[in-house]
Amino acid sequence: MIHPTILRFHPFRIRRHSILAVFGMVCLLGLAACGKKSAPGADGPSLLNVSYDPTREFYAEVNQAFAAKWQRDHGVKPAIKQSHGGSGKQARAVIDGLEADVVTLALAGDIDAVAKAGLLPSDWAGKLPQNSAPYTSTIVFVVRKGNPKGVKDWGDLVGDGVQVVTPNPKTSGGARWNYLAAWAWADKQFGGDEAKVRDYIGRLLKNVPVLDSGARAATTTFAQRGIGDVFLSWENEAYLIEKEFPGKTEIIYPSLSILAEPPVAVVEANAAKHGTAELAKSYLEFLYTPEAQTLAARHFYRPRDSKVSVNFPALELVTVDGKFGGWAAAQKTHFADGGTFDQLYGKK
């Protein structure tokens, strides 16, 4: 009997192998060629804005307005591309090589992380007015119509049978604001008794049935899938829910919340590489113009420009700088590995 291994020695077999090898190399080279950054489109420069979750609708309008303005001033229309996701996740992607020209994230800590990776200078916050935060927001409660669980303030969130929806502070910027707002309230309530504050936060986390990765996923969980009684939400997202699901929800303003300052910055290393430094800078400066500030108000952000009229209820707002000693400190104490969140979450 002839053993099939004799096939192995046939010259044509060997040549077939080399054909395969050559084909494989061509495939890989083709891939690498695709990977070369293609030249910007003939009709204008392009800019990538990597942002967090609830800004989708806002930036869709800002991009249109800015592109029109840039075209008036420079004769070419820039293509502005968007990427959205949980703020922490987005920062991670930029660090891993997502070539954002500008980042517009939920909190300074996430841009600090990008700065630490060497993509922009560590004093980025001073490059634009008001801590580089062109609009602010706060954290409010969204409840089902008629507020069946009678939720009025932070203390009501730890009641028996109250389900609280909030995203994961490890990946979501909004969730970190939620967490700090709850902490600030408890700190005031219990006169700074940290044991009581920790107990409160622990009980609050126990009432959270799911931790989504981003604010938008949490919104869908609450509004679309109908899970939970209270949704700790960005103020702007809360109004958006009212708009998208009319008559289903109510917004409750707690006695105290936190001043959320979502910052913006040019990712200088990427912008320099793409030759978009000027475009990126104008784009962020545009956010401070009355036109963009009006858009911000329309999407329920609190504009910095006092001339833009808004009617948000006034409430006591603490700041991260004032209450927690800045984002770096807050991040380290509460959200880093082994921080208070890790200590208190899952402690059943």
Binding site: L31, A32, C34, G35, K36, K37, A93, I95, D96, G97, L98, E99, A117, K273
Partner: peptide, 23 residues
């Protein structure tokens, strides 16, 4: 292939994008 990955630096130096792109 990420910026801080094993081949990140080599790829960055040649302006080849693998992650967050078609390849």
């Amino acid at each position: 292939f990420g910026s801080h990955g094993w081949f990140g630096e080599w790829l960055d130096a040649r302006d080849i994008r693998i992650i967050f792109a078609l390849p």
